[in-house]
Simulated scan of single mutants.
Amino acid sequence: MTISEHIAITGATGQLGRLVIAELLRIAPGAHLVGIVRDPVAAKDLAERGVELRTANYEDPAAVKAALTGVDKVLLISSSVIGQRVRQHGHVIDAAQAAGVKLLSYTSILHADTTALALAEEHRKTEALIRASGVPFVFLRNGWYTENYTGNIAAAIQHGAVLGSAADGRISFAARADYAAAAAAVLAGRDNQAGQIYELAGDNGYTLADYAAEIAKQSGKPVVYKDLREADYKAALASIGLPEAFAALLADSDAKAANGALYDASRQLSALIGRPTTPLAESVSAALAR
């Protein structure tokens, strides 16, 4: 990486975006970081740390094009708007092509090309758009974030149960910070990363029963894993306020995890970041401390 490189991060104020920027500030202090944000006021702290803010959102092609002008590398953090991702991502891809970006990194999903997860369809289509654009790319195929479950740890303790449809399937959890470190390593790397596809997942696989047992161990409260039929798990997710379509996707992912869809033993993530991924016990401890 050269000091003059401009590195842009979309969704810079999101949970992953902030972690990527923090890691880049640590490992690449000479880089010129560009945070693509919807609301500069919400990113005031990033500006105070030397990050250049440019205002744009995935729905505004002209703003995205302006925001990527003069940028060398881009991290396209996938949109959270299920059903609109391909179109929104297309605006960023078109802008990267117009700007002559040297590397476009995209946060895809584990085994995007072969997985049965319904959640992967928009990622596959986005990967195809990137390939067709001719922009040099890296696919960061992220596995499951441990926070997908630990974000609901208080409810699990309150009700004494972790709900899911994964049966005894093993899930290769990794902390969001682990995936952020991987993205930063690629963006800051000196080696030519173009064309690389990383299948990123935690070093170890855990069942949801393992997860429930870890909560019980650390909290001192009785917590067990309750396996549900996919339809019942979807209903449970919808009952706590998740949109029905999103609840269906999460339930589908859980059910397919029973057959190994969220498991990967390649340890590409720890190899990329140069350290072991965050153990489940550590993530549970951090969640309980909040």
Rank of each mutant, 00 (worst) to 15 (best):
H6Y: 13
I7E: 11
G14W: 06
Q15P: 00
L19M: 14
L24A: 07
I27S: 00
A28N: 02
A28K: 05
P29S: 09
A31R: 15
H32I: 08
H32K: 14
V34G: 03
I36P: 06
R38I: 07
A42G: 12
L46W: 12
E48R: 13
G50Q: 12
G50E: 11
V51T: 08
R54C: 13
Y58Q: 14
D60M: 02
V64N: 10
L68S: 06
V71W: 08
V71E: 11
V71F: 07
V74P: 07
V74H: 07
V81Y: 11
I82S: 12
Q84A: 15
R85T: 13
V92H: 05
A96V: 10
G100H: 05
G100T: 05
K102T: 02
L103D: 10
T107C: 10
I109A: 05
T115G: 06
A120G: 12
E121W: 02
E127Q: 15
A128D: 13
I130A: 08
R131Y: 01
S133D: 09
P136Q: 11
V138N: 03
N152E: 07
N152K: 08
A155T: 15
A155C: 00
A155K: 15
G160N: 05
A167R: 14
I171N: 04
A175M: 02
A183W: 07
V186I: 15
A194Y: 03
E199T: 04
L200E: 01
A201N: 09
A201L: 11
A201S: 15
G202Y: 08
Y206I: 13
Y211C: 13
K221P: 00
K226S: 07
D227M: 04
L228V: 01
R229E: 14
E230Q: 15
D232R: 13
K234Q: 15
A235C: 10
L237Y: 04
I240Q: 12
P243S: 10
F246E: 14
F246D: 13
A247V: 05
A247D: 05
S266Y: 00
L269G: 10
L269D: 08
S270D: 04
P279L: 09
S283W: 02
